[in-house]
Simulated assay, not measured.
Amino acid sequence: MELRQLRYFVAIVDHGSLSRAATVLHVAQPALTQQLRQLEEELGAQLLHRSAQGVLSTDAGKVFYEHAQAILKQVADAKSAVTQSAERPSGSVTLGLPHSISGALALPLLSAARAQFPEITLQLTEELTGNLAEQLKSGRVNLAVLFDDGQLSPFVCTPLVEEELRFICRAGSSWAEGRTSVTLEQALAAQLILPGPQHGVRPRIESVARSAGLATANVIEINSIAILKSAILADMGATILPVAPVLAEIERGAMVALPIEQPAISRTVVLCGSKNIPLTNAGAAVSRLACQVAADLCHSHYWLGARLL
């Protein structure tokens, strides 16, 4: 198996056809077809379904595509680590952010990276927490912001902030009428709209509830932050989230966020890297910058509900 075969295969999948991939790669289509056939023979599996409309990955092809992407990224990172300067780091760095964190951290970090490290290409990807952990293990992302759930031993972790979760509902909703705070029991008794278990916030809520002898019930599960916000604005229920994803709605008075007491709920936000795949100079620079940006956001109170660790 050769690296060029991996590059060819990834290009075919990305462009959806052999002809378009051949044009982009500047390779004759018969040669591309031959390399793909050799790859499939070596793997003993069909990777692509071919049709007049283009190509689609088989189940085996989808699995191989993920690994091929990770391998090619690690090769590019290895080349970058050898050539780049520690004083002027350059190259590409991919940082994964959970949906509920990106609203607070993404734009400030991107702006800081462009100002301080113009030769670094910072790629931000927004994903479910579970997906980010898998991508970090495989090397598809260099860094990821995750939540300390006691299962981060495969990673090198740097604590960023302790982030408070609040009871959030539409302004004027009966769920918040006459209240300046709610107990956890009162919050769990409401019609809750929550992300699914694969989101980092949901396991934390379930864990704190169990410790208090309580449980969630009658939950509407919505995994899209945009749809979840629409459901809250329609007064279909309330949610338990950090403030950052709904900050704009709170600032314009469309939503309210009440502190939760007896007990309060918070989560530890950490920056993670792989223990097995070393960071390039560019990756290390972005890691340090992310810590500094998080600290600045806490000191300026821009990241509401977050306490610097």
Results as ranks from 00 to 15, higher is better:
residue 50 R to S: 08
residue 116 Q to F: 00
residue 167 F to T: 02
residue 196 G to C: 09
residue 308 L to I: 08
residue 209 A to P: 01
residue 88 R to A: 13
residue 303 W to F: 04
residue 78 A to T: 13
residue 155 F to S: 08
residue 106 A to C: 05
residue 160 L to G: 02
residue 109 L to F: 01
residue 48 L to T: 01
residue 189 A to W: 04
residue 168 I to D: 00
residue 214 L to T: 06
residue 155 F to G: 07
residue 263 P to I: 02
residue 249 E to F: 01
residue 36 L to V: 15
residue 169 C to Q: 07
residue 82 V to T: 11
residue 164 E to N: 06
residue 205 I to T: 01
residue 85 S to R: 02
residue 273 G to E: 14
residue 117 F to H: 02
residue 207 S to E: 15
residue 302 Y to H: 13
residue 38 Q to G: 10
residue 212 A to N: 07
residue 143 L to N: 05
residue 127 E to Q: 15
residue 220 I to K: 09
residue 171 A to E: 13
residue 190 A to G: 04
residue 90 S to T: 09
residue 57 S to I: 10
residue 9 F to S: 03
residue 199 H to K: 06
residue 159 P to F: 04
residue 82 V to F: 12
residue 16 G to C: 08
residue 223 N to E: 13
residue 81 A to M: 08
residue 239 T to Q: 03
residue 249 E to W: 01
residue 17 S to H: 09
residue 46 Q to H: 09
residue 246 V to C: 07
residue 31 A to H: 15
residue 38 Q to A: 14
residue 120 I to D: 00
residue 78 A to K: 12
residue 178 G to V: 06
residue 35 Q to S: 15
residue 174 S to L: 13
residue 70 A to H: 08
residue 107 L to S: 10
residue 149 D to C: 10
residue 235 D to T: 04
residue 174 S to M: 10
residue 252 R to C: 14
residue 46 Q to I: 07
residue 177 E to Y: 11
residue 102 S to I: 03
residue 52 A to Y: 12
residue 193 I to T: 06
residue 126 E to G: 11
residue 253 G to R: 03
residue 179 R to V: 05
residue 194 L to H: 02
residue 308 L to C: 06
residue 136 L to K: 12
residue 291 C to Y: 03
residue 215 A to T: 13
residue 168 I to W: 00
residue 191 Q to T: 09
residue 266 S to Q: 05
residue 110 L to W: 01
residue 62 K to D: 13
residue 61 G to L: 02
residue 295 A to G: 12
